[in-house]
Structure formats: structure tokens, C-alpha cells
């Protein structure tokens, strides 16, 4: 069975050690983590952890059940298909020699990202988007020369039903 990228959105008690329980579950059982984000929700007693993991279908089922079994896990949602929105933010430090500056700014414009730091030899760009958009801009900037990137990892949410 083929492995796919799965996004799990996990609501947990906002307590010390809870993240460690989740991460320990993944490492102890040999599940993989592609990215992981944590932050408080509107309810300060609850945090949301978003994990992307590569796994086949039965394994995702098992991962969800194992997560649910942890006492501090309140709810696990699997975000698949088109019923959710996902975003990731990336900071890209790109080499900006004079002959490339115009090209870079054109790309910034097309992708509606921002230049947040400028130096003699580089631009730092901020871009948010879904996976396709991010990989598109990265592949365009690569030939120009990427010095460094920092990614937040994916966060995601269900869409509300259209007609309500």
C-alpha cells in the first residue's frame, strides 16, 4: 500500500510534557514526522498540534488510534481531500547579485511574497502558501541561489460547509 502525506490536527491539553508524549509516541513506534507545529488555541487550556506524516492507510488509522489513546489528547482530525485549507510560511534567504535583483523582485511580485530584509548580497523573502506554491517558488529561486530557508511546517483547518 502506498504511503501518502497525511495531516493530523491534534487538540491536546495545554500542559507541560504533552508534546513530549506525542513526539515520544511517534519515535517509539517508528512513525515519521515530516513537520510539526504547536501553539495555543483560543482556549488557553488547549493547544493544537499539527503533524504531517508519511504513512499508508492502515498505518494512519493506527497512528490516529494511538494518539487518541493518550490521556492528554482531546481530539484528532485527519485533514485529507479538499475539505481543508493548509498553509505554511517559509523564509528564504536568496543570493541577490545585481544582475538577479530584478528577476527576484519579479518572482516576489508574481507569488505575492514580501522582501523582509535586504543586504548587499541577499534578499530575505517571506512567503505563505500551500505546498504547490512553495515548491514552485523554491524551484524558481534555486538556480539563482538559495542560501538558507526556514519553514514553519504545515498548519491546517477544515473548511466550513459552503452553504451555511
Amino acid at each position: 500500500m502506498s504511503e501518502e502525506k497525511n495531516i493530523l490536527s491534534i487538540l491536546v491539553d495545554n500542559e507541560p510534557g504533552v508534546l513530549s508524549r506525542i513526539v515520544g509516541l511517534f519515535s517509539g513506534r517508528g512513525y515519521n514526522i515530516e513537520s510539526l507545529c504547536v501553539a495555543e488555541t483560543m482556549d488557553p487550556l488547549v493547544s493544537r498540534i499539527t503533524i504531517t506524516t508519511m504513512a499508508n492507510l492502515p498505518l494512519v488509522e493506527q497512528i490516529k488510534k494511538q494518539l487518541n489513546k493518550l490521556v492528554n489528547v482531546i481530539k484528532v482530525h485527519e485533514l485529507t481531500g479538499t475539505k481543508f485549507v493548509q498553509r505554511e510560511l517559509v523564509l528564504i534567504k536568496v543570493k541577490a547579485r545585481p544582475e538577479h535583483r530584478a528577476e527576484i523582485l519579479r518572482i516576489v511580485d508574481i507569488f505575492r511574497c514580501k522582501v523582509i530584509d535586504v543586504g548587499l548580497e541577499h534578499y530575505t523573502l517571506e512567503i505563505t502558501g500551500d505546498e504547490d506554491k512553495l515548491s514552485a517558488i523554491l524551484s524558481l529561486l534555486k538556480p539563482i541561489g538559495i542560501k538558507e530557508i526556514a519553514r514553519t511546517g504545515i498548519i491546517a483547518m477544515f473548511r466550513e460547509p459552503k452553504n451555511n
Binding site: G17, S20, R21, G24, G28, V71
Partner: peptide
């Protein structure tokens, strides 16, 4: 000990 026993307890507390 809470860290050590996390994977072998049903739950634990400090």
C-alpha cells in the same frame, strides 16, 4: 522519572 516512564505507563504525573 516521568520522562523515563512515559512510554511504559498508561499515564503519569509530576
Amino acid at each position: 522519572i516521568v520522562g523515563i516512564t512515559r512510554p511504559c505507563t498508561k499515564h503519569n504525573y509530576l
